[in-house]
């Protein structure tokens, strides 16, 4: 459903991504793994149309995403959970979700469905989102993206800075979404965070793909060693 072909992205003439290519099939979880500054976040931003200058092509359900204005991209059914959560911190939980719902004109049904996944947000619906704990903020960032009822979800380091119980809660949500047929592109730095959920792993270094492996190969010691080597852990 998502085909990225020879994607090259620039930030003010500095090449960040170099001819990156990968495919993501429906209901699959694809993980991009790599060190700081490898280009993982830039890959997600390029898909969302938030990078000024890109070359190559991004196809989503046979539609070209590259070149269309950024605000049309979520309307195609792509939900984005950015790095560092990037909530509208001065708005309430409900208002943050409202922004998500507005994107594809979804209504109360969607909101109720999303809130049933995260009962803690329901309890804090009128709270200013900046006053939530880190884990709750991450839940809200995920919930906000789910309010557009995405068929593709982009997750940028959702486990960053969270306590273990929160990480497993987020992981369970990912597995639940996968079961519902949502495709997920997951960016992480730590390999432990993704092994239980990933169908395929791609290692990115200096903006290019250097290694990739499927889930069934994870048991293979050599593959695993390779993965650890590339991420430097």
């Amino acid at each position: 459903m998502l085909i990225v072909n020879n994607l090259t992205s620039y930030y003010s003439n500095i090449k960040i991504l170099k001819e990156l290519s990968f495919n993501l099939n429906q209901g699959q979880v694809l993980c991009l793994l790599g060190r700081n500054g490898a280009g993982k976040t830039t890959t997600l931003k390029s898909i969302m149309g938030l990078v000024d200058k890109t070359r190559g092509s991004i196809l989503f359900n046979n539609e070209k995403l590259s070149g269309i204005p950024a605000h049309y991209i979520p309307k195609k059914g792509i939900g984005y959970v950015p790095q560092g959560r990037r909530l509208f911190l001065e708005l309430t939980v409900e208002e943050n979700l409202e922004i998500g719902l507005l994107a594809r004109k979804k209504g109360k049904d969607t909101k109720d469905k999303v809130l049933s996944m995260f009962p803690r947000l329901k309890e804090r619906i009128n709270q200013i989102s900046g006053t939530l704990s880190g884990g709750e903020q991450q839940m809200l960032a995920l919930a906000r993206a789910l309010c557009i009822e995405p068929s593709l979800l982009l997750l940028d380091e959702p486990s960053e800075g969270l306590q273990p119980s929160m990480i497993s809660l987020i992981r369970n949500s990912i597995l639940e979404l996968k079961k519902q047929g949502v495709s997920i592109l997951l960016v992480e730095q730590r390999i432990e965070a993704i092994l239980p959920v990933a169908d395929e792993v791609i290692i990115i270094e200096n903006g290019s793909k250097t290694f990739s492996a499927y889930a069934k190969e994870f048991k293979d010691k050599k593959t695993l060693q390779n993965l650890y080597n590339f991420t430097g852990l």
Binding site: M48, P82, R86, E90, L91, I99, G100, R104
Partner: peptide
């Protein structure tokens, strides 16, 4: 008003949620 406030707080993320900034 909500759209304006969201754009004010983070225009990039507003775009990522379909707001034509």
């Amino acid at each position: 008003g909500l759209i304006l406030r969201a754009t004010q707080l983070d225009s990039e993320i507003a775009q990522a949620f379909g707001i034509p900034i």
